[in-house]
């Protein structure tokens, strides 16, 4: 049922922009990986996309975290154990060695689009057989 994997175009439309939630996240599937997309209408960069999988808890939760700002940098706080991840780079602010995969994201013709890279982060790895 996951028709997205058969698409070949470089940018993959995910949903229309009215699905975005200001200052919060939504979650999409991309090639079997779950991706959190954050919309910050007032920030310089308005859209960010990161792996939805929290490396600390192993649960898919990042897209439900709170958006935080500190000294001009934006991050998301994991709802499970509250670590922060830089929205720009995916870097965990509490732990140097942990980094979330970031995904290129844009708005095109009223659609939110993710770039259809096949790159798979080890942390965000989910086997396709898990997909219903």
């Amino acid at each position: 049922m996951n028709s997205m994997t058969t698409l070949t175009s470089q940018w993959l439309p995910i949903c229309t922009v009215d699905n975005l939630i200001p200052n919060s996240g939504i979650v999409a599937l991309l090639n079997g990986e779950s991706v959190a997309i954050f919309w910050l209408p007032h920030a310089e960069t308005k859209l960010y996309a990161l792996s939805h999988l929290d490396p600390f808890s192993g649960a898919e939760v990042i897209g439900h975290g709170l958006i935080c700002e500190s000294k001009g940098r934006w991050s998301v706080a994991s709802p499970v154990y509250k670590q922060h991840f830089d929205l720009e780079t995916g870097q965990c602010l509490e732990s140097d060695e942990i980094k979330l995969t970031c995904y290129p994201v844009r708005i095109h013709n009223n659609w939110v689009e993710l770039q259809n890279t096949q790159a798979k982060s080890q942390l965000a790895h989910i086997q396709s057989k898990d997909t219903l």
Binding site: I21, P22, N23, H64, G65, L66
Partner: peptide, 21 residues
């Protein structure tokens, strides 16, 4: 809409998130 981005996941989804999400 003006309040929704202020809440952690528990308040947003009106349920208690557990360790496995």
């Amino acid at each position: 809409p003006a309040l929704v981005g202020l809440q952690d996941t528990n308040d947003t989804f009106m349920a208690n998130m557990q360790k496995n999400g």
